[in-house]
Amino acid sequence: MSEHRKQTFIGLVAAIMVIGMTMPVAQARQVTETLVGDMERGERLYRQRCMACHALDANRAGPSHRGVFGREAGAVDGYRYSGALRDSGIIWTAETLDSWLSNPTGLVPGTSMGVRTRNAQDRADIISYLESLSPAEPD
């Protein structure tokens, strides 16, 4: 094999290895972004996981959740938020909620919320349920 062909072959192998290493990551990211949430399963997960601290219409250890979609973080009346979350400027969307549920202290260092939901499908289902809730009744 000539030197030129040898270098071409090595380059090809290296390129295949790079593609092989990066594809799963790219695919995984894409799958996460395109997950479809199951609202009913999300309600069940919400009851099992979130309702230790939260309710739809009452502030408990955590703030109430009805109408959370589209709301600014730290904006529920009567709940004592951490300064970090109150000042975060975050608007709750599917994307920000996914980041939040995945790693709250990673998204907002200094927050009081530390419970992580590791499974992406679980997060998508919970978010789907939260999105389905009608906004809170005005006072």
């Binding site: 099992q48 230790a52 530390g114």
Partner: peptide
């Protein structure tokens, strides 16, 4: 049930 889940979810933080 919620508390058990919450503590488990809290551990990595």
């Amino acid at each position: 049930t919620g508390a058990a889940n919450a503590y488990l979810g809290l551990i990595p933080s």
